[in-house]
């Protein structure tokens, strides 16, 4: 935040203002744009008011249909789908880590001091991140057919951008001292990487991996809605058949796995990293 600016008023006395007039204008413009966007959105969005009035009743209906959950259904199909979801998230994360390492290295300017290469790597990372995992899933379902393979690849391709970006930034923040020492000792490139850079970025790397795995567990639960395997497929078929008591079991199962994943991540981070 810039320092306060003194300004002389009409009588020549100093008046203190927190922002310059240019800054105030910019803030006003942003506020105006926000209000204008909200008003424009409210005026043009197509909402049917009757549906909103009806909503509490429909919600109540939904919950009475969901209760009691059909637990008997869990062992025969849902458990397997749930395990598949976890496999999709874990394998997808691992594949993304392997693929993102080289891209992250290419994106780090201190390791590869070539702007075109850096930009190319960053382009890969940005395009991976800009496409939602559901869209990646649609693409891979089109290519490999429905199933867990499409889901795994979707998770992996979506995660490359995230992991590569954060890993590249961690590499750029690595201290030059140890690397200069290694270079001075005549160490080859591989030794500089394994003994100079890797020990410095290793904690960041594992922390990014855990973080992404946690996100991927949540995301892999919905991939099945477009046919990419996992518990989303069970959810989709239960909903299409209006078996809301099964939907309730599936939702509880997803909730349990998400909470469990968060606990695992917090514990591992506390103990290992």
């Amino acid at each position: 935040m810039p320092a306060a600016q003194p300004a002389a008023d009409a009588h020549g006395a100093q008046r203190w203002r927190r922002f310059t007039s240019g800054q105030r204008l910019a803030r006003f413009a942003v506020h105006l744009a926000i209000v204008a966007a909200i008003v424009a959105a409210i005026r043009s969005v197509e909402v049917i008011p009757e549906f909103l009035v009806d909503a509490p009743e429909q919600m109540l209906d939904l919950f009475t249909r969901m209760w009691p959950p059909d637990w008997a259904h869990y062992p025969d199909t849902i458990h397997e789908a749930l395990m598949e979801t976890i496999h999709i998230a874990s394998l997808g994360t691992l594949l993304a880590l392997v693929l993102a390492l080289p891209v992250g290295v290419l994106a780090a300017n201190n390791l590869v001091p070539s702007t075109p290469v850096n930009l190319f790597a960053k382009l890969i990372l940005v395009s991976s991140r800009s496409v939602n995992s559901l869209v990646w899933a649609l693409l891979f379902v089109g290519i490999f057919g429905p199933g867990a393979l499409a889901g795994t690849l979707a998770i992996a391709f979506r995660s490359i951008g995230f992991v590569g970006k954060l890993f590249g930034e961690a590499l750029e923040e690595a201290q030059a001292g140890p690397i200069e020492a290694l270079t001075a000792a005549g160490a080859p490139w591989t030794s500089r990487m394994t003994f100079g850079y890797w020990p410095q970025v290793e904690p960041a790397f594992w922390s990014i991996a855990l973080f992404r795995w946690d996100i991927n567990v949540r995301e892999s639960a919905v991939l099945g809605l477009v046919g990419a395997g996992g518990i989303g497929m069970a959810l989709d078929s239960a909903m299409n058949l209006f078996q809301w008591d099964r939907v309730a079991v599936i939702l509880i199962a997803i909730f349990a796995v998400v909470v469990l994943a968060e606990i695992v991540v917090t514990q591992v981070r506390k103990r290992v990293i």
């Binding site: 049917i48 549906f51 009806d54 909503a55 429909q58 939904l62 959810l235 997803i254």
Partner: peptide, 24 residues
């Protein structure tokens, strides 16, 4: 926080019908 927005959207589609309101 625990459910993906798309799953929450499914529930709201049931509650308020198809359309932008469920997404909002």
């Amino acid at each position: 926080r625990s459910f993906h927005p798309v799953i929450v959207a499914i529930l709201f589609v049931k509650a308020v019908g198809f359309g932008a309101l469920a997404g909002i």
